[in-house]
């Protein structure tokens, strides 16, 4: 039906005159990377704490940790994102909420997206950390308690160093997921990669070129992350365990 291909479109100056369309894509690319990395740090930090709490012998703490995981795992990301961006500021005290809402919108969008992705992923990271800890032979814990380590020391010096090395492979896939899930954040107006792709469709009426470019950019991110994680995995592998050679 007469689709006119035009790959040169990326080099054209954009309609608003601030950059080329390729420049827009690059802005989105940087936004996707920045968002995903900061959300990942948050997810790793919170997820480790929650994952550990799920395994401690205190019923209240492990119950709270479980509630946390269930809450963030059982609501679609799209809904969570909407709640963080649109609903949360309404629940703040009026003066604080209004001051926040008048601030730079890019900062607001980035914060909402980062918190949302970070918490959503932290629940999944917590599950991986928990299963890593519970896959350790109980003898390790008992032995270290028996030689006089406190519970905190047992976690710090015996169980966590082992568990984290074991969960690197499953965490790799969560790490990859966070980049892909970040594409959802275009729905609150954050100009990341997928959103820039959609903008290109709107501004240039060349949808296929832009889909293809965005898809290739995600593939590139994936390849880079995959190879760096593979390198990490090779370095932390525990001999004698599955995957350890």
């Amino acid at each position: 039906m007469g689709y006119s291909w035009n790959w040169g479109v990326f080099l054209q100056p954009s309609a608003t005159g601030d950059d080329t369309y390729l420049g827009w894509m690059f802005y989105g690319f940087k936004m996707t990377i920045g968002l995903s990395l900061s959300a990942w740090l948050m997810a790793l930090f919170l997820g480790s704490i929650i994952g550990v709490l799920r395994t401690v012998p205190n019923k209240v703490l492990s119950g709270l940790a479980m509630a946390y995981v269930e809450l963030f795992r059982n609501i679609p990301l799209l809904v969570q994102l909407f709640l963080w961006y649109f609903v949360l500021p309404e629940l703040l005290p009026a003066s604080l909420g209004n001051a926040y809402k008048q601030s730079n919108p890019v900062v607001q969008q980035f914060l909402a997206a980062m918190i949302c992705l970070g918490l959503f992923t932290s629940a999944r990271v917590a599950e991986q950390v928990r299963s890593g800890i519970s896959s350790l032979p109980p003898g390790q814990k008992n032995a270290s308690l028996a030689i006089g380590f406190t519970l905190a020391q047992t976690y710090r010096y015996v169980m966590l160093p082992m568990a984290f090395r074991l969960v690197v492979p499953p965490l790799t896939s969560e790490f990859l997921n966070i980049f892909k899930n970040s594409a959802v954040c275009s729905t609150i107006g954050l100009l990341e990669l997928a959103a820039e792709g959609r903008q290109l469709v709107d501004y240039t009426a060349q949808p296929y070129e832009s889909f293809i470019a965005v898809t290739l950019a995600y593939l590139l991110i994936n390849v880079v992350v995959m190879f760096s994680m593979r390198w990490l995995e090779a370095h932390v592998r525990v001999p004698g365990y599955i995957g350890g050679k």
Binding site: S173, A183, A194, F211, L219, N222
Partner: peptide
């Protein structure tokens, strides 16, 4: 690997 590399939103598009 191809399907795991691309966001679901893009696959659906």
């Amino acid at each position: 690997n191809l399907f795991r590399a691309v966001p679901l939103v893009m696959v659906l598009l």
